[in-house]
Amino acid sequence: MPARYGMVIDLDRCTGCGNCTVACAVENNIPPGPPGVTDRTGITWMRVYEADNGEGFPETQSAFVPVMCMQCEEHTPCVSVCPQNAVEVDPETGIVGQIPERCLGCRYCMAACPYHARYFNWWDPKWPEGMEKTLNPDVSPRMRGVAEKCNFCHGRLHTAREKAAAAGNAAIDPADYVPACVESCPTQAIVFGDLNDPASEVAKLSRDERAFRFLSRLGTEPKVSYLSSRAWVRSLADRVLARDQKEEARG
């Protein structure tokens, strides 16, 4: 049976430290931002947002929400719009792959993504002199003028597959394939694995009563779920829910 890789992120454990963002950038050869870069022009495949309950001081409550490509399973918004097949869902893994070498930079996929999880290379990639020696050989740097996004550290899946193939195995050892954000999270807030394997922790957690997915009513079946025991955090899932929650609170 093909795999369906997915994630569950526990928002009650996330401290917003930023390890995932940085580890992701190191792993995936994402260049440092050039001078003048902003949170709207930078590239952070994995970005931690701060969400609050909308109340003023001192009733404000916040939560940190890591957001990356949700690897939508159905009607994947970025796949159908790409004019030249630079994006696709891998039927073997469920991972939404983006091929920067095929991309012409029309940014239609970025407009189409409800999670704003796609990033454009507004600048040429530049590392300080000598630092290109520290790049990860398993991921190719992108050029200016193309879109890119999280692919669950696909380079690591390659490594795991290669190891399996060298041993003559068809299947990889799940322990060999852990994305950088999962590996670097100090509080182990992120769990990764095969959603098709009912015994996997990720499959169990995604069915937890604390679990929810953002914008699930769009019908894109994202493969990244979130956990929280706080009702207001769960109500962030979509606007109708948030409105209902607010009305309920007002009575």
Binding site: E88, D90, P91, E92, T93, I95, G97, I99, E101, R102, D138, V139, S140, N151, H154, G155, H158
Partner: peptide, 9 residues
């Protein structure tokens, strides 16, 4: 191998 990312990185 059907997916682009099978042979691209």
């Amino acid at each position: 191998a059907r997916a682009c990312l099978d042979c691209h990185k």
